[in-house]
């Protein structure tokens, strides 16, 4: 699908992260100065259970080339079972995403703990590379600047 050289563009990736694990894991990567790909932006929520289909679909709608949903490892949720709810929400989102014809590799669920700074960096690098391989999202801004989404609501 990607006709252009995969390094000739920079993907735009939204990362939804739980405050207690993956967001903290990204901070840990920072404290340890573990360099990783800079093409993602984090949106912090208190629990991965908060990450509903609407967030992910909106990210794609606005032009995300990839969306990463991240939470605590199963059994380690700060709120007991929030991450298990996140799985349910994620699966529902994934079925819609696939139906819309968006490559399923553009959406990913990862469990990253607050201590796993290196793993956070690894996941980001790997996901970024995967999105590069796929090329720009058909809804992405890099596809055609004229099609960029409209301004902020409210």
């Amino acid at each position: 699908m990607a006709t252009k050289d995969k390094n000739s563009w920079d993907p735009e990736i939204v990362v939804f992260a739980c405050n207690w694990c993956s967001y903290a894991g990204a901070d840990t990567a920072g404290v340890s100065r573990i360099q990783h790909q800079p093409h993602f932006r984090m949106i912090r929520v208190m629990c991965s259970g908060r990450i509903q289909p609407a967030f992910v679909l909106r990210a794609f709608e606005r032009g995300a080339d990839g969306v990463l949903v991240s939470g605590c490892h199963i059994g380690e949720c700060h709120y007991i079972f929030g991450n298990e709810r996140a799985i349910e929400q994620f699966e529902k989102t994934m079925s819609i995403v696939k139906m819309l014809g968006i490559e399923e590799q553009r959406l990913r669920l990862e469990w990253i703990s607050s201590a796993e700074g290196a793993r956070f960096a690894e996941v980001i690098n790997e996901f970024t590379e995967q999105i590069r391989e796929l090329g720009p999202s058909p809804f992405g801004r890099k596809r055609s600047p004229a099609k960029a989404g409209k301004g902020v609501a409210g």
Binding site: I43, F55, R58, A59, R62, A64
Partner: peptide, 18 residues
């Protein structure tokens, strides 16, 4: 969800690509 409302999260998504 106070302090993490739909509107707040949506605004961040929109601003990323805004």
């Amino acid at each position: 969800a106070r302090h993490f409302t739909d509107r707040q999260v949506h605004a961040m998504i929109d601003a990323f690509f805004g």
